[in-house]
Design a protein around this nucleic acid. Structure first.
Lengths: 138, 138
DNA sequence: CGGTATCCCAAAGGATACTG
DNA sequence: CAGTATCCTTTGGGATACCG
């Protein structure tokens, strides 16, 4: 019975799969980052090609520099995005998806595409509620 | 040229498709509801079958009654969830997905499934960063 | 250009109590 | 059981200023 001591198993190796329904599962944090207000749009923007910071800022309407930077740091920390800085002046920094990030982006893109397509029907639901409100107000 | 006056076209009919990259597009609100902290989990929980309020609360670890109720109202307002209340005592209320909600749930489910599966690899990214931090601290 | 630091606000979210 | 009401905390997020 040689070498029977517990090997140095990291936390990540101890969980075979996440469970989003469990309150304390680390997958909850990943979900938060990916589905954060700007996380979704960043992943989609990076799906096509590598982008610079300023390019993304221009692509994603309404995002502030602060939140874009923070969102990119979240995704980088989760291993979905790679940040590559060139030591030049003026600064040049590129962001791209990791292989894992590409997979993530595909799922998020599917959701985003569906929303953009189904939006008119969902707004009709609003219209219907508005009509109800008007009908009950006479 | 009879009947040339503009017909009563609702806002929903004027937009053929949403654009999530546009800051002022209504699709942004839909995205917020669906990807809110509890919105994702509610949609997934309801994908399999109709559920009562208490059932969902027990399924979704850590959710408060307040946020569960609010999330359900958001999704109901977007036409993704139907709320059916029975006039009995004690109260009996059922929630189920609309046809549109089923489509939404499938996309969200795909994303959630992927996260649960890929989580170990993403936590490895954390481990790697932790190792870096340790290595650079000597 | 690509950030970080600071301040600030609004809104998401939680805890508790109460009600039909 | 299924909420609502109230109060409170947290944090996502914006605006501005500053820096390498």
């Amino acid at each position: 019975m040689e070498k029977d001591r517990t090997p140095p198993l990291s936390l990540s190796a101890r969980l075979a799969r996440g469970d989003l329904m469990a309150a304390d599962c680390p997958s909850r944090a990943i979900l938060q980052h990916m589905t954060s207000r700007w996380g979704v749009l960043v992943l989609i923007a990076l799906e096509d090609r590598t982008l610079r910071f300023g390019e993304m800022k221009r692509m994603i309407g309404g995002v502030s520099e602060r939140m874009l930077a923070q969102t990119l740091q979240w995704l980088e920390g989760d291993g979905l995005v790679i940040r590559k800085a060139f030591a030049v002046v003026p600064p040049h920094v590129e962001y791209r998806l990791t292989p894992l990030g590409v997979e993530a982006a595909h799922r998020v893109r599917s959701l985003a595409d569906w929303i953009e397509t189904a939006m008119p029907q969902m707004m009709a639901a609003w219209d219907a509620r508005g009509a109800e409100a008007l009908a009950s107000a006479d």
